[in-house]
């Protein structure tokens, strides 16, 4: 049985029926379409008027969405700034090797008289990073992660280098993965905020950092000499 209105059936009565059925369908469908556009007119736009309707401290867009539906924030896979939780970093340098554009620079030194390795530098040039996420995958402890942070305006591009070892004289000890325990990871974004890369501590008009060679010395891993007396023993 062919569907009503399908071609292949001839006859004047059927043709007339199809003619008027077509008019009716057209009117009804236009009405449906108009109802859809009208319903959108009555809803709030999804646009976030960045940056002038944005309080700069809290991710207001996320907060608004949280009110509507818990869990509907920026997508979980949102690739914002990279951050490293130095407490769980194993100093394996897998991320550094994975980075296709060499925006991660890690310096590992040995403490004198001990067979201990320490990290004296862990820099990520956020101005250079292309947010591909290739460094996140090989990390054995999920120390390096993308955050939902995206706001780190600065007057000088050098200030976009996030230094996860702020003071080379106080190097970080590599993490040893415990057996059968969950690895504690600081909340996403908290490290960057603590460092002042973004969030309330961020000063967009911060002066140029004292010469560190950070941008120029990528690949030259001995930019700093470690003051071994300060190393925690």
């Amino acid at each position: 049985m062919p569907r009503r209105g399908s071609p292949g059936i001839v006859g004047p009565r059927h043709a007339v029926g199809r003619y008027f059925a077509g008019i009716w369908t057209a009117l009804k469908n236009v009405g449906e379409g108009m109802a859809v556009t009208m319903s959108w007119l009555l809803r709030r736009p999804i646009t976030v008027q960045y940056p002038d309707r944005y309080d700069g401290q809290l991710n207001r867009f996320m907060r608004d969405l949280e009110q509507i539906d818990q869990g509907q924030k920026l997508p979980l896979a949102y690739r914002g700034f990279l951050e490293v939780d130095m407490d769980v970093c194993t100093a394996c340098q897998a991320c550094e090797r994975a980075c296709p554009i060499d925006c991660i620079a890690i310096t590992i030194d040995k403490v004198a008289d001990e067979r201990r390795r320490v990290m004296t530098r862990f820099d990520i040039d956020l101005g250079k990073c292309m947010y591909c996420g290739l460094c996140v995958d090989p990390c054995p402890t999920a120390a390096i992660q993308h955050t939902p942070e995206f706001e780190a305006t600065s007057q000088y591009v050098e200030n976009l280098v996030a230094r996860f070892v702020p003071d080379p004289r106080r190097p970080c000890t590599p993490y040893k993965i415990p057996k059968g325990q969950q690895i504690p990871r600081k909340p996403l974004g908290s490290v960057l905020r603590e460092l002042g890369v973004c969030g309330p501590k961020k000063d967009p008009f911060a002066p140029l950092p004292p010469f560190s060679g950070a941008r120029r010395s990528f690949g030259l891993h001995a930019a700093f000499s470690v003051d071994r007396s300060l190393c925690d023993k």
Binding site: E32, M34, A35, S39, R43, L65, D69
Partner: peptide, 27 residues
């Protein structure tokens, strides 16, 4: 009647809107 049907369709569309795509009812 046509206008009432139209208003009904608008209300129906808003009611059955998918939350994850947009914020609804916030004028």
């Amino acid at each position: 009647l046509a206008v009432a049907w139209y208003v009904g369709r608008v209300a129906f569309t808003i009611r059955n809107a998918r939350d994850e795509l947009f914020v609804k009812f916030a004028l």
